[in-house]
């Protein structure tokens, strides 16, 4: 049995190496990413929590089966987010899910607007939780996911490029377009930035 202390000291890359020799170490990796990935799935998919947990299980199985494909020159987090992204989008599209209002908490929604436009929190707080959620969910998936990765998951451009498998230049363009799109939606709600 692998102890929690053993896990904490190890990097992701070391844990991948150890998991290939002893599957017990995989528990450390999964626990490290469980909450982050579940939140990410919920935000990009609008699935309910039970479905999101099922996806996460599929993600962990896929990651385990493909551990030998992991390239240590990449960040492990980018690689696991990539698999999560692909699995979620694939299931999300198959199920053709309608938006549900369960995936975001109020502070996260405010943070995404605040960090995107450097506006005062007070300005954003004029909007209700439902209004902000409706604004975010009205955005096309490609804009929504890039805003989530940049402003909620705090990934840098290179990590986003590795997760979405797009060139760095395209990532910059997408972020700008997502901001513009968000701005238009805010304008419709009567907020001028």
């Amino acid at each position: 049995m692998v102890t929690t202390e053993e896990c904490i000291k190890k990097t992701d890359e070391q844990l991948v190496f150890l998991t290939l020799k002893n599957q017990e170490y995989y528990l450390c990796l999964m626990k490290r990413y469980e909450n982050k990935l579940l939140n990410y799935i919920l935000k990009i998919s609008n699935l309910n929590k039970e479905d999101a947990e099922d996806i996460l299980q599929e993600v962990f199985i896929k990651v385990y089966q493909n551990l030998n494909d992991y390239d240590p020159n990449l960040k492990f987090s980018s690689w696991i987010y990539r698999i999560t992204h692909n699995t979620t989008i694939s299931i999300f599209r198959k199920k053709n899910v309608q938006p549900q209002s369960v995936s975001w908490d109020n502070e996260e929604l405010i943070n995404i607007l605040e960090s995107t436009y450097n506006v005062e929190k007070d300005t954003i707080r004029q909007l209700t939780y439902e209004q902000i959620l409706s604004i975010i969910n009205r955005l096309p998936l490609k804009y929504k996911e890039i805003l989530i990765l940049k402003f909620i998951e705090n990934k840098d451009y290179k990590e986003i490029s590795d997760i979405l498998h797009k060139p760095l230049g395209t990532i910059a363009t997408l972020i700008n377009r997502a901001k513009k799109s968000l701005k238009q939606e805010l304008f419709k709600e009567g907020i001028k930035l």
Partner: peptide, 26 residues
């Protein structure tokens, strides 16, 4: 919340799931 990580590890052991070999990816 379910303990997903432990459930997955149990499933891996029960179904004898193994990482695909390196040569497959190469």
């Amino acid at each position: 919340m379910k303990n997903i990580s432990e459930q997955v590890l149990k499933r891996i052991k029960k179904d004898n799931i193994r990482p695909k070999p390196r040569w497959y990816f190469l």
